[in-house]
Amino acid sequence: MLRFIAKRVLWMIPSLVVVSFLSFVLIQLPPGDYVTTYIATLAASNEVVDINTANELRARFGLDQPMIVQYWKWITGIVLHGDFGLSFEWQQPVSELIWERMALTLVLTFTTLLATWAIALPIGIFSAVQKYSVMDYIVTFLSFIGLAVPSFLLALVLMYIAAVHFGQDVGGLFSDRFMNEPWSFDKIVDMLGHLWIPVIILAVSGTASLIRVMRANLLDELSKPYVTTARAKGLSEFHLLMKYPVRIALNPFISTIAWLLPNLVSGSIIVAIVLSLPTAGPLLLQSLMSQDMYLAGAFVLLICALTLVGSLISDILLALADPRIRLE
């Protein structure tokens, strides 16, 4: 087992080198650079920048050097000093910008995840066991609605209801007075008060699809002979259901962790923009639009690294959960 993990970690190193290079190439691909976008923005407000100034800016940002040199500077900075470079647009180190947002994204994602699993798994199990009952049809109907409603629409509706009927201040994760305050108990309470809207919105579509997956997984397992064996032993229906088929039907969920982590960065961008949440998604979008190269590069690199780490974690967990993978 330890050898398996060590081997997997070693394999991650060349993968990381490749993806880091690819992500750098990727953000270089669009025509122009940050300076071009900057000049265009200035031109929109009738300011003219002459070519000399532009070149001066390029030299200052290091944009006039060949790409491979820029990559080398960038990646050695990250590996040796943890320095992700400077965001052109924000004039701040990228790492400062990212970590604050990542922390909040983490809170939001895991709260959503817990809510989703807590609601979806029991309903999915119920719906599989009571297949084709009235309740199953109701649950199925509702979960298809949940799947079909776009989350940004749900976000707008919920914001309207919260603002108009409850008079609550919606949008963002904090009230105005806490926005720039340091962390305190009051600020956390305030955040929890804001958290429920995005959690509900994000949980609805997640729950709906999870119910369907759980139902299908469990239906496959329920007809397996080992369930009959367990029944013939004299176990109660609930006990045998939880111990055998549900336990095995849950295994596929472990592999979903692999794409859960990259979702921290790139998931739910639209909802976050609609609700103006201070999470990573909107910042990623903004950096891509303004060609804020180092910020965007850091995000893309983070997504790639999280994908690799996510698959490693899910592989290890799967091996722990399923002896067939561990021992064969």
């Binding site: 002979p225 080992y226 064996t229 111990k243 336990r247 095995i248 959960a321 399923d322 002896p323």
Partner: peptide, 13 residues
């Protein structure tokens, strides 16, 4: 039962 493989749970000892 007939199928000794599938009649026992694969994930429990």
């Amino acid at each position: 039962f007939q199928e000794p493989m599938s009649s026992l749970s694969p994930v429990h000892t």
